[in-house]
């Protein structure tokens, strides 16, 4: 099963792991680092309250996404809208709008075996994770947000300082 696969030794120390712009895994899955983009963490008691403040409809069920906004919790959304979108800060309103554009990066995992690559360290049943769903979860010990945009493409949101480890952990995955 593994005869043709060679993993180069991770000769570097953990401190030398660095993000790359893209990589091709042995099984044909590609990793791509997305360019920086504007993102916000949105909080409110209800989707309606939030929608009224930011002037956009937001998804109402945890795990759903709508036009670049994912519902992560009963009072929490991640906005990753198209470039140029501006989200008002909601001053004085019972909402919380926080710019988190620089907090993390997005690694795009793409290919027929993308779900299996992520399953190496994510305990969710990602084969049965519907296209268009997003959730916060973990990859081994690192917290991530997994957003399935297409059947064979996942976007993985991770905080900046964990990204090099995650990138190389994904690169080390060996498909059986």
């Amino acid at each position: 099963m593994s005869d043709a696969i060679a993993i180069p030794p991770l000769a570097v120390a953990g401190t030398d792991l660095a993000l790359e712009s893209n990589a091709v895994l042995p099984g044909g899955v590609t990793l791509t680092l997305e360019p920086p983009a504007s993102r916000w963490s949105l909080r409110a008691r209800t989707a309606e309250a939030l929608g009224a403040v930011i002037g956009r409809a937001v998804p109402t069920r945890i795990g759903e996404t709508l036009d670049g906004i994912a519902c992560l919790g009963p009072d929490e959304w991640l906005a990753d809208p198209p470039a140029g979108t501006v989200v008002p800060d909601g001053a004085g309103q019972p909402v919380s709008v926080v710019d988190v554009s620089a907090r993390g990066v997005v690694i795009r995992v793409e290919g027929a075996s993308a779900a299996r690559v992520l399953c190496s360290g994510c305990p969710l049943d990602l084969e049965r994770f519907a296209v268009g769903r997003a959730t916060r979860t973990v990859f081994e010990t690192v917290e991530v947000i997994v957003w399935r945009e297409q059947a064979d493409m996942f976007r993985v949101f991770v905080w900046r300082s964990f990204a090099p480890w995650l990138w190389h952990a994904l690169k080390a995955v060996q498909l059986g």
Binding site: L10, V12, A13, G14, T15, D16, L17, S120, G121, E140, T141, V142, S161, F162, P164, W165, L166, H168, A169, A172
Partner: peptide
């Protein structure tokens, strides 16, 4: 995977 460079995130 938690070995060598990937032992834990630094």
């Amino acid at each position: 995977h938690h070995k060598d460079a990937l032992f834990q995130p630094i």
